[in-house]
């Protein structure tokens, strides 16, 4: 403090810098403390997926050969197809392209998605159109004349 004027000058500059930095940091902190909760709020919390081990779809005789049926596999749609020779095939009915619900087309003998005309054979293999992967297969078991569908063991 020997030279009051120069120390005053220095003081002024450092004080201004300090305040600028403090206000800047405070501003960033304010924006972050407002934006962070909003950003987190926008994304919903994950919900436990109801995933039953096995679903009773109905009696064997309810399903005519050469037809397909949509059923509830937890909160996703499943499709049970009975082929012309009476065999059962089941898949998640969610198209692997963009998630529409597929259907069985007896005229074509394939599983078909109406949204972008993707096709799957009765083994769930993607055979035409944009779908990139086969349908997710499900296990079919017949007990006492009832059709049970369950998720395949991983």
């Amino acid at each position: 403090m020997n030279d009051p004027t120069s120390s005053l000058e220095n003081d002024k500059i450092t004080r201004r810098h300090f305040l600028d930095a403090a206000i800047g940091l405070g501003g960033v902190a304010l924006v972050a403390s407002v934006a962070y909760p909003i950003a987190k709020y926008l994304v919903p919390p994950p919900q436990a997926e109801a995933s039953p081990a096995s679903v009773n779809v109905g009696k064997v005789d309810d399903f005519q050969p050469d037809t397909g049926t949509i059923f509830k596999m937890g909160n996703k749609p499943g499709i049970l197809v009975r082929s012309k020779d009476g065999e059962f095939h089941a898949f998640l009915a969610v198209c692997t392209h963009l998630g529409c619900t597929v259907q069985y087309r007896p005229d074509l003998g394939v599983i078909w998605c109406a949204c972008h005309s993707g096709r799957f054979d009765l083994n769930g293999i993607n055979i035409a159109g944009p779908p990139p992967r086969p349908l997710t297969p499900l296990d079919v078991n017949i007990r006492d004349g009832q059709v049970f569908v369950s998720r395949e063991e991983a």
Partner: peptide
């Protein structure tokens, strides 16, 4: 209906 197929011609 989440448990119906996508309608043809959509």
């Amino acid at each position: 209906d989440p448990f119906a197929s996508a309608p043809a011609g959509i």
